[in-house]
Amino acid sequence: MTTPRQRLASIFVELSGGNSGAPLDHPVLLTALAVRSRELVGARACSVLLAPAGSESGEVYASEPRARDLVREAFNRGEGPGPYCRRTGNPVPRTDLRSQVARQRWPHYVSRALALGYTEVAARPLRGRDEVIGVLVLFGSGEAPLTEEALVFGQSLADIVAIALLRDRELDRSRVLAGQLEHALTSRLTIEQAKGVLAAQRSLSMDEAFAILRGHARARQRKLLEVAREVVEGRLIL
């Protein structure tokens, strides 16, 4: 028999790598992380901030809109457990938002969070290869407190998602580079063919044919490849 946790873990494995090769749907995956984490840990609310180093804006997903707004605002102000966790890579342990320490540390954040009914907060990093790419923020309240066990599992879910995101980013990069390489190679082929067509049509040398192709493209501010393709396909006579 599978426990709810095992089932949940398998959901994430499915979400993150089940359909290998297909690009990830970030909103679906990250919303699932937030919603499922909340269900699983019995927290009041969960939110995911995705903000890899160097990115100006972050993406925020949450189990409820007010948690999303709070985490987004904290990110924009750079104050609160989310920004701290993202900056340092350190998890934020379960913190009582009613404590004096919390109020002093994040004055603006704490009053907003308490107003929304959250009395506890914890944060776990989404760890990339060399940097933190985001944060999972968990909120608790009197009826739905955060437990140590829940936080450990929250980190595991965050890890699965982080790995999926990294893999997706690498996949994307590979696809782009592979596409560029193929484009460069096929362009060259078409241009050489066009030189041959032009050389035969007008009894020119290959260098002369290329000069005419390039001259035509420049004069009309068109791409050399487009001109070459039209020449090869017989749609353009130079």
């Binding site: 060259r188 082929l189 050489e192 063919q193 030189k195 041959g196 067509v197 050389a199 035969a200 090869v232």
Partner: peptide
């Protein structure tokens, strides 16, 4: 890149 072969193909197509 077999440039000459592609050039030849272009010529022969004409």
């Amino acid at each position: 890149h077999r440039d000459v072969v592609q050039q030849a193909a272009g010529m022969v197509s004409v």
